[in-house]
């Protein structure tokens, strides 16, 4: 048990490091994400929808010094949730309409489909949606979408073990520990 705990503690030191700026890392990882998207044949989404989804997921949680949500398989989980009706009907409609609107809005704002705008443009545009969703009292597409991406990433193996920290078998409970000794948020 102690060996496992020590190993986990050490891994925390590595992953608790500084966060590299989004544009630097996303340019490094664009090709990698493109490969992932190409090999993936969605069950429900069209290729166009999958491209919008993947770009949006990558913008919300990009790879930095830790893996991003695309590497963690978040677009694939979204497609699976659609296929198996995990979303409630009204949420599903909101998600699908929301993804479609990303494309029409990107055309209006930037003259290109969402999947083809630059990383900076996607970040700028989705940041606006984020502000609006947080300010809104009504449920909005981006709020639900962000919630899904965060959930899917945090419960993925890469997200839980490399961005957050996860102990399968803690072995003991300590109720008052300096945060500095623990590091980042627990995945569960």
């Amino acid at each position: 048990m102690m060996n496992r705990r020590e190993a986990l503690k050490q891994s925390i030191l590595v992953i608790g490091g500084t966060v590299v700026s989004a544009s630097v890392v996303s340019s490094m990882l664009t090709s990698c994400n493109a490969d992932v998207a190409e090999k993936w044949i969605p069950a429900v989404l069209t290729q166009d929808q999958a491209a919008i989804l993947t770009k949006a997921v990558d913008t919300v949680i990009p790879a930095t010094s830790t893996p991003g949500a695309v590497q963690a398989g978040v677009p694939q989980l979204f497609d699976l949730f659609l296929k198996d009706n995990i979303f409630k009907k009204e949420d599903k409609e909101m998600m699908m309409n929301g993804l479609a609107s990303l494309d029409t809005e990107a055309q209006a704002k930037y003259g290109k489909p969402f999947a083809q705008i630059t990383e900076e443009q996607a970040f700028e545009y989705l940041s606006e949606l984020d502000k609006a969703a947080i300010a809104s009292k009504e449920p909005m597409f981006f709020g639900a979408f962000k919630q899904f991406v965060v959930f899917a990433f945090a419960t993925s193996e890469l997200g839980a073990t490399q961005h957050l920290q996860y102990q399968a078998v803690p072995g003991e409970y300590s109720g008052c520990v300096p945060l500095t000794q623990i590091g980042v948020t627990w995945a569960v």
């Binding site: 608790g16 966060v19 590299v20 700026s21 989004a22 913008t59 919300v60 949680i61 990009p62 930095t64 830790t66 970040f123 989705l126 940041s127 984020d130 502000k131 947080i134 709020g143 962000k146 919630q147 965060v150 959930f151 990433f153 945090a154 961005h163 957050l164 945060l179 980042v184 948020t185 627990w186 995945a187």
Partner: peptide
């Protein structure tokens, strides 16, 4: 308990800022 990564959804920020928010209890 301390709010977990879930609370980052309601905090302003996407991209690297969101990832930082998720890591901070």
């Amino acid at each position: 308990s301390r709010d977990g990564w879930q609370s980052a959804v309601k905090e302003m920020g996407i991209g690297p800022a969101l990832k930082e928010n998720m890591q901070r209890p």
